[in-house]
């Protein structure tokens, strides 16, 4: 079940408890965590000082292009409702079918303070 809408800004990173509660079920639903690569950063033309982002990502497969584009429309509407920037990459294949990959992250999230004796 989805958590209620988040209020306030910036939003903090997931806590350990939130991670345990939400991320493990998401992994079971084929979501994965991945990290933005230097190649992607260069492709976006951002600075080398740009912080590396960890994001949630999932690839969705569709039987045909009609259902694929219908899904993109649904994603667009959800993005507007949730005030989420939408990014996606298409043209991929999953199990021999049309696939769309959706990365999800918060670009200006609040990182917790490191412990003073932490590395």
């Amino acid at each position: 079940e989805a958590p209620p809408p988040v209020k306030g800004w910036p939003t903090p990173w997931l806590t350990q408890d939130e991670f345990n509660h939400y991320m493990l079920p998401l992994y079971e639903h084929n979501w994965r965590t991945t990290i933005e690569t230097q190649k992607q950063i260069q492709a976006e033309g951002t600075q080398s000082t740009h912080a590396l982002g960890t994001f949630l990502e999932k690839t969705f497969a569709f039987d045909d292009s009609r259902s694929c584009f219908a899904a993109l429309q649904s994603i667009h509407e959800l993005c507007e409702k949730e005030k989420h920037h939408c990014e996606w990459t298409g043209g991929g294949r999953l199990d021999g079918k049309n696939a769309v990959t959706i990365p999800v992250c918060t670009h200006t999230a609040m990182r917790p303070e490191w412990p003073e004796d932490g590395s």
Binding site: P3, W13, L26, L56, I75, L78
Partner: peptide, 27 residues
């Protein structure tokens, strides 16, 4: 703390809603 990219409850909510939204559309 510094504002940097990361995974937040906002993203988790979006991912779960996305799964629910696309449940009938994926193959």
């Amino acid at each position: 703390g510094r504002k940097v990219p990361g995974i937040t409850l906002r993203d988790v909510r979006f991912a779960i809603l996305l799964d629910q939204t696309l449940a009938c559309q994926v193959s």
